[in-house]
Design a protein around this nucleic acid. Structure first.
Lengths: 129, 129
DNA sequence: CATTGACTCTCCCCTTAGGGGAAGGGTTAT
DNA sequence: ATAACCCTTCCCCTAAGGGGAGAGTCAATG
């Protein structure tokens, strides 16, 4: 099938499919006469796989690795789990950072009256130190 | 003072100060003879302010806005608080997204044995749908 | 048969917030 | 004089595509 059909079948954009083809992540065949990309069903399955992995915050390079394991029917599931646990660690780190930020920002916001007057603990908090 | 000194006084890099000068966020004077940037104490204060705001996840454009309020001694604190509450909403949204992601990824990871065998619920989870 | 509209191609610039490094000029210390 | 730093501008690089121009292709209709 052509790229537009493959894109909507995979729930991605045409631009994304071209990008993935350029970086050799999911490589369709190329029609000899027209130069059009031709996607097989297995390509669409890979695209869906990558799309889902991307939604799980895996980077393109991690997706490339996962796709290799997806295609390798002799993979040790240990490798997949390792990548996943690393991603969970990333997420935990980001959660901790955001929670701390939220805490501090909330404290500043609570101290600010938010009225017409210029006195502002938020500005003061950003300015000091 | 010259850029290097200002950078270490503000806890930022020389590259960052040049960038901020280029985008007219913090604009030092320029020495006529040498072409060197010359930072005043008030510039360093602004740089510190921006540095802190950046650490609080404010974008450059938000910093520009906050800096305007920081310099405006007649600002209504309402405006500062509005920007801050918006940022808190951003953070909450990101937290919710990450927590959902973590939950789903954790469920997949828990189901995976992580051994030598190829059977892998994580791969299956990414592939299905 | 020709045209029209929808699709496809490549190529290039744009995004955030700077980092890395080259090439060239200035100042100071040995 | 020469080395060791400091400063300048200029250009390319990042992640993951988005937007759009200009040109070729395909299917259906008048």
């Amino acid at each position: 099938m052509k790229i537009g059909e493959a894109a909507s079948a995979a729930g991605l954009t045409v631009k994304t499919l071209r990008y993935y083809a350029n970086i050799r992540l999911v490589t369709p065949q190329i029609s000899e006469e027209t130069g059009y990309r031709k996607y097989a069903e297995t390509d669409v399955a890979k695209l869906k796989f990558v799309g889902t992995a991307r939604r799980f915050n895996f980077s393109i390079e991690e997706c490339r690795e996962l796709l290799g394991l997806y295609e390798n029917k002799n993979r040790p599931s240990r490798e997949v789990k390792k990548i996943t646990l690393n991603k969970l660690d990333d997420i935990d780190a980001k959660l901790a950072e955001l929670q701390k930020l939220k805490q501090e920002l909330q404290t500043l916001a609570n101290a600010c009256d938010g009225d017409d007057r210029p006195n502002c603990p938020i500005i003061d908090g950003l300015a000091k130190s």
